[in-house]
Simulated scan of single mutants.
Amino acid sequence: MRLTMKATMKATMKITLDDLKGPEIAALLQEHLNDMRATSPPESVHALDLDGLRQPNIHFWTLWDGNNLAGCGALKWLDAEHAEIKSMRTAAPYKQQGIASKILQHLINDAKTAGVKRLSLETGSMDFFNPARLLYSKFGFEICDPFDGYQLDPNSVFMTKKI
């Protein structure tokens, strides 16, 4: 039997533009990659590692609850008006507490401020990814064709939203 511990969110949560150098984010992203590799075949894993996220066209954000990393998400600019959401992840103790919604809203706001007109994403088609697909749908994302070099893949769902 696995026991899980839920964190209690503090009123002082803070979202910061992250430099991807801290051990906390390295651990959370490794957990993310491990889950993606355990859930999807290798050719269908599109999650980026630390080096993949350290690109000039990517803004990477972390949400902190005091000194505790609660979640993360990134925007990858595809062109001046189109960005892709990458690396959305909630730390295990913070699941089902609205962290992903806070991060997603921040990404949408950041994209709008930067002049982005369309946000897109790729997520998995398996049951494991159902909470993510429901979250994106709640925020107005709709299923679309592959974009930016992605190919049709039965293990992927592509979604987009005009902002």
Score class of each variant (00 low, 15 high):
G73L: 06
A74W: 13
A74P: 12
A74S: 13
L75Q: 09
L75F: 08
L75G: 08
L75M: 10
L75E: 04
K76I: 07
W77K: 13
L78P: 03
A80Y: 09
E81D: 08
E81F: 10
H82R: 07
H82G: 04
A83V: 09
E84T: 09
E84S: 09
I85K: 06
I85F: 06
I85S: 06
I85W: 03
K86E: 14
K86F: 15
S87E: 13
M88P: 10
R89E: 09
A91C: 09
A92V: 15
P93R: 15
P93L: 11
Y94V: 13
Y94Q: 11
K95D: 05
K95T: 12
Q96L: 15
Q96M: 14
Q96K: 15
Q97C: 10
Q97H: 07
Q97I: 13
Q97P: 04
K102M: 11
K102P: 05
I103N: 03
L104F: 06
L104G: 03
Q105L: 14
Q105D: 06
H106K: 15
H106W: 13
L107S: 02
L107D: 04
N109D: 15
D110Q: 13
D110S: 09
A111G: 13
K112F: 06
K112L: 09
K112Y: 08
T113S: 14
A114G: 02
A114K: 14
G115N: 07
G115K: 06
G115D: 06
V116Q: 03
K117R: 08
R118P: 07
R118C: 12
R118L: 11
S120M: 10
S120T: 10
L121M: 11
E122P: 04
E122W: 00
T123P: 02
T123F: 05
T123R: 08
T123G: 03
T123V: 02
T123Q: 02
G124L: 05
M126I: 10
M126R: 11
M126A: 09
F129I: 02
F129L: 05
F129H: 01
N130K: 03
P131N: 00
P131F: 04
P131V: 01
A132V: 02
A132H: 01
A132I: 04
R133V: 06
R133A: 05
R133Y: 01
R133L: 02
L134T: 08
L134D: 08
L135Q: 05
L135H: 04
Y136L: 01
S137T: 01
K138Y: 05
K138R: 09
F139E: 09
F139T: 10
G140A: 08
G140P: 06
E142D: 00
E142I: 12
I143S: 12
C144S: 13
C144L: 08
C144F: 00
D145R: 05
D145N: 10
P146D: 10
P146M: 07
F147T: 01
D148H: 07
G149Q: 00
Y150A: 11
Y150E: 01
Y150V: 10
Q151E: 14
L152Y: 04
D153C: 11
D153Q: 09
D153G: 04
N155I: 09
V157N: 08
F158I: 05
F158M: 07
F158W: 08
M159A: 12
T160P: 00
T160V: 07
